[in-house]
Structures are given as C-alpha cells and as structure tokens.
Computed example of a mutant assay.
Amino acid sequence: MQTREMALIIRDALLLPQGRIEVRLVDPGQLRMVADVLKGKYHLAFAAMKPSGTPPCYPTATQCEIIDFNQLEDDTLSIVLEGQQRVSILSAAQAKDKLWMSRTLPCQNWQEEPIKGEFELISAALEQFYEVNPDLLELYSQVHLEDAAWVSQRWLEVLPMYNRDKLVLVNQPDCHKTMDFVLQLIKSHVD
C-alpha cells in the first residue's frame, strides 16, 4: 500500500466513508488549502479533534472529497465534504500557515451488508432521527437504510459521545460492535 500526503481538516466531529458534513472555513490558510485540493496538489482528510497532543487529532481519519461549497453572508466559505476512504495518519506536521499536512496509509472500509432482524430497529431510528434533523438529511442525495455499515457509520457521526469512544468502534474490522452498541442504546431508552 502506498502512503499519500493529505491536508487535514480537524474538527470536533467525525466523518466516515459515505458520510457528509458541512464545514465552515474562516482562515485564509484554509481557503488556500481548499484551492490547492481542488487543483489536485494533494488530497484532503477529515480528522476528529483530540483534547491534547500533537497533532491535535486522532490517528484515524477519513479521506474526503469536496462535493459542494457556498459563500456565506459573512463572506466565509462553507464546504460540504463526503467521506471516501478511512486512512491512518502515520505522521503530521504543521505548516507556517497553521495548516496540518499528514502522511497517510489507506485502511479497510467496512463492507456493505444487509440489515436483518432486530437490527432493523437502528435503521428505523436513524430514519426518524433524520426526520427530526432535516438539515442533516439534506446533505444526502440518497440514504442507504438497508446497509448495516452505512447506518452504523451515520450513527457514529451523530451520537453525542467522545471522539475517543467513537473511534474504538470505528477501528473494529466491521460494523457489528457498532450495531450492537446502538441497538442496546435504543432499547435502553425504549424500556
């Protein structure tokens, strides 16, 4: 496997493959980074913020693509990112413009698999979550409520948990532990 240089966007959020997130950019360095990414100078990765340490993010990130952008009323830029491929950050350094550049290695994405049996509850609950949060649903042109990996990853992106706890689940070889976790969480609130 080949390593790849990537610019890092670090936020207190999680973005996983096939997920989407809208990010507001205010710093001129970040705007220049977006221009460089769009010109193909390097790839972009989204990493979850870590409370302390250098770099200020966890070593698991997601290579992403910029799929949309909007200029906001205050002249800042909003970009919509779509997660593509999980990556491991091997090293990272901060440039003089305060941007983080990293050397990454691709990781295995979770494989698609059908949701069956009692796990259909987590799919139905996610559909309800999106009905209550239409701004998140608007980011997607298609939802894949029949795919256990897709549903599990969307739950990890939106659950109010510490990033370090989410990444324990993300770093599993498949979505099964996440499905069990979310199902138990939903059941505990129903009982």
Rank of each mutant, 00 (worst) to 15 (best):
I115N: 03
D68F: 09
R164N: 13
K116C: 15
E73N: 14
P59C: 02
F119A: 13
L167N: 05
T62W: 03
L31I: 08
R24G: 02
T62S: 08
L126P: 05
R154M: 01
V168N: 15
I10H: 00
L137I: 06
G53L: 05
T54M: 09
T3I: 07
L145P: 11
E82M: 07
I122Y: 03
L15N: 11
R86I: 02
C175A: 10
Q2I: 14
E112D: 14
M6H: 09
V158G: 03
Q18H: 14
V132I: 14
G53K: 12
D27S: 10
C57E: 01
R4F: 10
N109G: 10
T104L: 07
A13I: 00
V23D: 07
V158C: 05
A35E: 07
T3C: 09
Q108A: 05
Y140C: 02
I122R: 05
C64K: 10
V182G: 03
R154G: 12
N133L: 10
S91H: 09
G40H: 14
P114F: 08
L105N: 11
Q30G: 06
R24I: 04
G29S: 12
D68L: 03
D180W: 12
V190R: 15
Q85R: 12
I66D: 02
S91T: 06
Q94A: 08
E5D: 15
